[in-house]
Design a protein around this nucleic acid. Structure first.
Lengths: 352, 352
DNA sequence: GCTGGTTTTGCAAACGTTTACAAAAAATGT
DNA sequence: ACATTTTTTGTAAACGTTTGCAAAACCAGC
């Protein structure tokens, strides 16, 4: 098509050379202007900037990074994207990234499932300057590789067993404690708990908070009311169903370790003929966007997801700035959000 | 810390040189092996591959791309991530990308909001080989820039007014037609419609489908039952509220142009004292993950979101392979998903 | 007008690849 | 064994930046 008139033209691209030529300085000077180097004469700076503007020059990241500059990219490894949880965190990440003029490379962990260490190796060796990991399930493999290379990373909603990276999390124990106490204050005494996968630290913390609150409220911890889940809606549904069939008298409240599980529990309860919150109260954890969307609106413990994203980026950037800055652990406060899925304990009326 | 014992060590990184040294060949040969060049002796190839394995070598993308190779990265521009819509599409994108061994760079359009053209300029000048745009609102600015550079891109769920890029969409008209006809078959005659932002083509198509179905079912198109929304839940809520207050007799069914709007409508209807689906039927469009999550489960028109993502990647990759391959337009079929939010028309019983 | 010190600038050498081009090695035919 | 062809490998020159080092230009002060 247009190969005819200018065959030797390569990529459509203005380079630093073009800018140098146009402004009558050396390319080194252009580079200095662009990277905000101090000792450049004001008039020169102006000429260069003008040329940049005119030519619509945009720096070539690959070259810059190769030459030792910054890529201004961080990687983000997420488990999935179909519930609002991660989306909300990303919103916070995004805001902060924009402020710092960074771009984001997204990896979903179901990709490259076989060779995880190679995978992270690739990330770290690639163009990202740091890595953010949201609630990774089995981070041990990753983490060692990252630490070995002294590659900056920050974990969100997951502790770092190697104690080497920064961590942003919420007060899981405290949140669970409050939720449980709230139910107790509503008069409930048979409060069931559906955990997350207990391999994950925050799941354990929530369970502990629940137990502690029970004790403090002078309620017995009954093992038959505690069932292990895995933070998935489907599992929440199934375990609740089994729970309701197995336990008698029925629990009058269910504390689900996260919102997704709570949704599953709601479905199961309803299917069992129970009305929410009249026959049974249900409370969640996380406050993902859907929580206020379901019917009845879910009472839950809010994690400041957006803020967690922001903080994580700040920590990561700090780490990138100064590789030797010590890893930090930031714990943000959760907050009980009362909506419509919990009600006061009703005097027993022989359910079904 | 470990700076003491080996000061002249730079970045922790194995280069092609190291591999060459270890396998006793020149770096060029290593490069050839790695890029799958044909004329390499089998024994040599083996030695090189072995060295790669031993040293844990991973190619440096920046360098590769600078030297004219591929980055294996595509960009994805999305409006947001807090409802499952985009997440679901990404799932499809992801699958396909993995197959092709590509990585993903994520941009959310609320970033760089001021200088959009510069923004896209930057993307196109960066390391992405192509760009995927999900339902961009005002793509005109972008598109021209992209076209000028002959930069490969594919639009998802949005037509390309410049007719220059490939497009993946669903049968919006048809889907709306079927939904409307379904309501009509249930006996409804006063079917309201809440549109999307009519600047967007698919919103118009859905409206047209609705009207066509009405006509074909021998129902009058009543302008007072059509209100303009913008695909947002909040707007769905507000417009529905106004609609219910204003119109009498009330509509017995509401067709919301997307699920989010339908959720808003459900809230409003309930607040107005209407029971779903007994007093009023509500139907949505998209079938985002939440649709089966809300109560009652939303009847809706499914767009094959995941598949749309997959197809989009295929088109984009094809375009990247052969810059001159003509832009295509793929339209995937929607499908009515009947759940619980629609019921048959009940004989009038003087609402409130 | 020189001297000595700053401030600015330019040159050149990286950075880690890919890829023409040419040389070397191997295979083939005689 | 030698010339010819074919396959395989190596050398060198990009790609577009950043940055150390040294030269040039400026500015005082005398």
């Amino acid at each position: 098509m247009n190969n005819e008139d200018n065959p030797p033209k390569k990529k459509y691209g203005v380079t630093i050379m073009d800018v140098a030529r146009a402004s009558g300085v050396s390319y080194a000077t252009v580079s200095r202007v662009l990277s905000g180097y101090e000792f450049v004469r004001e008039s020169t700076r102006h000429r260069v900037l003008e040329a940049v503007e005119n030519l619509g020059y945009v720096a070539n990241l690959q070259a810059r990074s190769l030459a030792g500059g910054r890529t201004q990219i961080i990687g983000l490894l997420v488990p999935n994207l179909d519930n609002g949880y991660v989306g909300t965190v990303i919103r916070g990440i995004d805001q902060e990234l924009e402020r710092a003029n960074y771009d984001l490379m997204l990896y979903t962990s179901h990709r490259h499932p076989d060779s995880e260490s190679f995978y992270v190796n690739a990330i770290a060796n690639g163009l990202t300057e740091g890595l953010l990991l949201i609630a990774p399930l089995v981070p041990a493999t990753y983490l060692n590789a990252l630490r070995e290379r002294n590659f900056p990373y920050v974990l969100i909603d997951q502790v770092d067993t190697t104690e080497n990276g920064s961590v942003v999390e919420a007060t899981n124990w405290q949140g669970a404690y409050e939720a449980t106490r709230y139910l107790s204050q509503l008069g409930h005494t048979r409060i069931a708990f559906i955990t997350g996968a207990l391999a994950v630290r925050n799941a354990v913390d929530r369970l502990l908070g629940y137990k502690a609150a029970l004790t403090d409220c002078n309620l017995r911890v009954r093992e038959e009311l505690i069932v292990e889940g895995d933070y998935q809606q489907q599992t929440g549904y199934e375990t609740t169903k089994r729970l309701l069939q197995r336990v008698s008298p029925l629990p009058t409240a269910i504390f689900a370790a996260n919102d997704l599980t709570a949704f599953g529990a709601m479905d199961a309860a309803r299917e069992y003929g129970l009305s929410i919150p009249n026959d049974i109260s249900i409370i969640g954890f996380d406050d993902i966007p859907q929580a206020s969307l379901v019917y009845p609106k879910l009472t839950t413990v809010r994690q400041p997801l957006e803020q967690m994203g922001q903080v994580a980026v700040k920590l990561l950037l700090a780490r990138i700035e100064d590789q030797n800055s010590p890893p930090q652990r930031v714990t943000l406060a959760t907050q009980l959000v009362v909506r419509d899925s919990c009600g006061p304990y009703q005097t027993e009326r022989e359910s079904a």
